[in-house]
Design a protein around this nucleic acid. Structure first.
Lengths: 138, 138
DNA sequence: AAATCTATGTCAGAATGCTTACATGAGTCA
DNA sequence: TGACTCATGTAAGCATTCTGACATAGATTT
């Protein structure tokens, strides 16, 4: 039953995010990617894929779209190894600012009926669930 | 941040479910569909779609696959209206039994680090989040 | 009764993401 | 040094799911 609730909540959250980001010409996965790049400037494609819970092929096509729109940049060749460090452009950073504000409002709305103690508990409980499911394969 | 945790948890849960169901030749959406049919025998395609958080087109293709495998049945024509009431076949029910047992183990593992009070709290908190996101368009 | 609205099933096409596969660069070990 | 392992980037094909569109059946309104 909890799994069903999780799916329900994620579906509702995703819908709200898509609706709000559409006005900026962004999809939810694209927003997630930009957000990761702000937290981890210079991250490689594979690293972004792991953090975004998609395959690196999926992240690759995602990055190309963002690259074509001038929101992120990647060097043609790697200085060392094969990883291509990706960074936000100024335009990407500005668009991300606008997107992040919208997403923050949605997340705030999502937890608006929880007091601060409930919010902390919820985050902690979710973390315990994640750890339990991932133990044994990292 | 909570949105990211939700995605993380859902991704992990989905992976475990896919892994376990693959041995039965089922995908997670197919399992969800069968489970809904057990709870709501005779449900229409559109009803199943709403409860599964997918479009009715998606549910339609899903149902056809289950139908071709003899796991569910639908009448050719509706007695009244256009809705075609779908029901589990014996084979579908038996396969669902095996699948449900596996899924139950995974969900139990997911919440294994939470005591009963935490589990109830978590379910309640998730419900509050869902309601907050859906108020105004339900 | 006729028109309108709503819900349903279905088709076609596009978008999205995954699986499989391959080539390359770097580290490890014999 | 050479073989092996691992991680990365990329390409091709497939599966899944969505959007848009249309026809039909029943309910509602006029």
């Amino acid at each position: 039953m909890l799994g069903y609730q999780l799916k329900h909540l994620q579906s509702a959250l995703r819908s709200r995010m898509d609706e709000s980001l559409r006005e900026l010409g962004l999809s939810t996965p694209q927003y997630v990617c930009l957000e990761q790049l702000r937290r981890r400037p210079g991250a490689s494609n594979s690293e972004l894929a792991r953090r975004g819970f998609v395959t690196r092929q999926t992240m690759n096509t995602l990055l190309r779209g963002l690259q074509d729109r001038g929101l992120v940049t990647r060097p043609e060749k790697a200085e060392t190894g094969r990883a291509l460090p990706t960074t936000l452009t100024d335009a990407g950073g500005q668009l991300l600012d606008r997107a992040a504000e919208r997403i923050a409002r949605i997340q705030e709305r999502m937890i608006s009926r929880l007091d601060s103690a409930q919010r902390e508990r919820l985050a902690g409980d979710l973390e315990l669930c994640i750890a339990a499911l991932e133990e044994g394969e990292g």
